[in-house]
Simulated scan of single mutants.
Amino acid sequence: MTDRTHPSGAPWRNFYGRFKGKTLRPSQDEYLTDLDHVGLAGVGWADNPERTPLDLDALTGGRPLWLEIGFGSGEHLVHQAQSNPGTVFIGCEPFINGVATCLGKIRDTGLENIRIHPGDARDLFDVLPEESVARAFLLYPDPWPKARHHRRRFVTQEHLAPLHGVLAQGATFRVATDIPDYVRQTLQEVPRAGFRWTSRRAADWRQPWGDWLSTRYEQKALREGRVPHYLSFERL
């Protein structure tokens, strides 16, 4: 991030991922209309230029708040929301095709404890109250395999420092990846941002969490011989 700003006053944040892929099917376009009631209001700079923090009571009604950063097509997000009906979930995903697919899953399941931010997680960090999130997930993020692109990964201080700010003391931060070098960078950078790696033995990071749902991406990684790592951190 630099000191430059957009005309709206938003900070100039480089974004390196995709916002849209193949042309959406008519059904996906129709799912996107659900953002009118599932979408998280007050995050975008256009409707909240003062960056007023979100009203946590209105959002959660006193329930715990969990966050998934980059939910893909929403498989894990929907699974967790079904398994934890007393928890409110925010899912961040800038890739609109994935957002549409996730909205279709939410409609099919009738879940009412998910809110979607179809954009950059950094904009959400601006407006989440401090220490408001009890658990966060970063699952199979874009690996950016070339060394010169490692600064684009989520596990840099530009992302981790504000994440630390919105997580409650003692909150859990889970990272899953099948890229060995991403594991290295995660174990190097996340503790620097104020987290403690909680693994005590190899099985802690080799075996998935007890409430884990193996996604289609993970199944592909396993078929191709890549080894998933399941890293858990505690916010200090």
Rank of each mutant, 00 (worst) to 15 (best):
C92A: 10
E93H: 06
E93T: 02
P94K: 08
P94L: 07
I96S: 00
G98D: 11
G98M: 14
V99R: 06
A100R: 02
A100H: 01
T101N: 13
C102D: 15
L103P: 14
G104F: 15
R107Q: 11
D108L: 11
L111T: 08
N113T: 08
N113V: 07
I114K: 08
R115V: 14
R115M: 05
H117L: 15
P118G: 09
G119W: 08
G119R: 10
R122W: 08
D123S: 09
D123M: 08
L124M: 06
D126K: 00
V127E: 15
L128T: 02
E131N: 02
S132M: 03
V133F: 08
V133I: 14
F137E: 12
L138E: 04
L139M: 11
P141M: 03
P141C: 05
W144D: 04
P145H: 11
R151W: 13
R151S: 12
R152K: 13
F154R: 14
E158M: 02
E158K: 01
H159S: 02
P162I: 10
L163M: 06
L163P: 03
G165K: 02
V166N: 14
V166E: 15
L167E: 01
A168N: 04
Q169G: 04
G170M: 00
A171R: 00
A171P: 00
V175K: 13
V175T: 09
T177N: 04
T177Y: 03
T177M: 07
I179C: 05
I179Y: 05
V183K: 06
R184Q: 01
T186N: 15
T186P: 13
L187W: 12
L187I: 04
Q188F: 02
E189L: 01
E189K: 03
R192N: 09
R192K: 12
F195W: 07
W197N: 13
T198S: 10
R200M: 06
R200W: 04
R201T: 01
A202H: 09
A203P: 10
W205L: 04
R206Y: 00
R206E: 02
Q207G: 10
P208S: 09
D211M: 10
D211I: 15
